[in-house]
Design a protein around this nucleic acid. Structure first.
Lengths: 107, 107
DNA sequence: CCGTATCCCGAATGATACTG
DNA sequence: CAGTATCATTCGGGATACGG
């Protein structure tokens, strides 16, 4: 069950998508431009997962040309807190880890 | 840089190894038995990574038969806090996510 | 006992082309 | 614009055998 959550937390794209939507509501193409390196395919798949898990809401407008907006749910917003916790730890311990790696690789 | 950390946080085996060592110092074979489903290969690779990142310390005793102990470093211990934060979130929101998935799949 | 080395298969994902 | 479908490829990781 925790692994379930980790599959999402640990996923690079999921995290980047959630982080992006944390800034603002975005359209599909906006996300595509906002996240460097993500393919159309992966963005679609990631958004579906996040929607399924209730972290993201998809709103399609019946217009021409089509417009689809994605935004975080309340649950998605709390998820960002987790991301921040991890990010803080990463920033705080980054140099220590780098140093450890350098020493390890020296051997 | 944060992705670096996520590669570790998000890694199933890394997390399980750190969690195990959070309980107690352990030998290689103990870890192997303690973590269901992990292969010798993955345990070795995971431990090397964690050692390289300075989360785990490896101590080999010059005995026959060989004995190798693994324990968390101070950094490794703080890493557990992260894991707990994630775990708490997972537990708190598990049912909500499950429900969301069920509704999504119903469509 | 504690690994390393090798082979190998399936899943993940990028690239590309196509559609409502 | 916002996807879906298909193909090609890479690569994580299991199984197995061997080594210090």
């Amino acid at each position: 069950m925790i692994c379930d959550v980790l599959d999402r937390v640990g996923d690079k794209w999921s995290l980047l998508v959630v982080a992006s939507l944390g800034e603002d509501v975005m359209r599909f193409s906006e996300l595509l431009r906002h996240i460097p390196g993500i393919s159309q395919r992966m963005l679609t798949l990631t958004l579906r997962q996040l929607e399924r898990d209730g972290l993201v809401i998809r709103t399609a407008y019946a217009e021409v040309p089509p417009r689809v907006e994605y935004r975080l749910t309340a649950l998605g917003a709390t998820f960002i807190e987790i991301a921040h916790t991890i990010a803080r730890w990463a920033i705080a311990n980054h140099s220590t880890i780098e140093q450890s790696r350098a020493e390890f690789d020296a051997r």
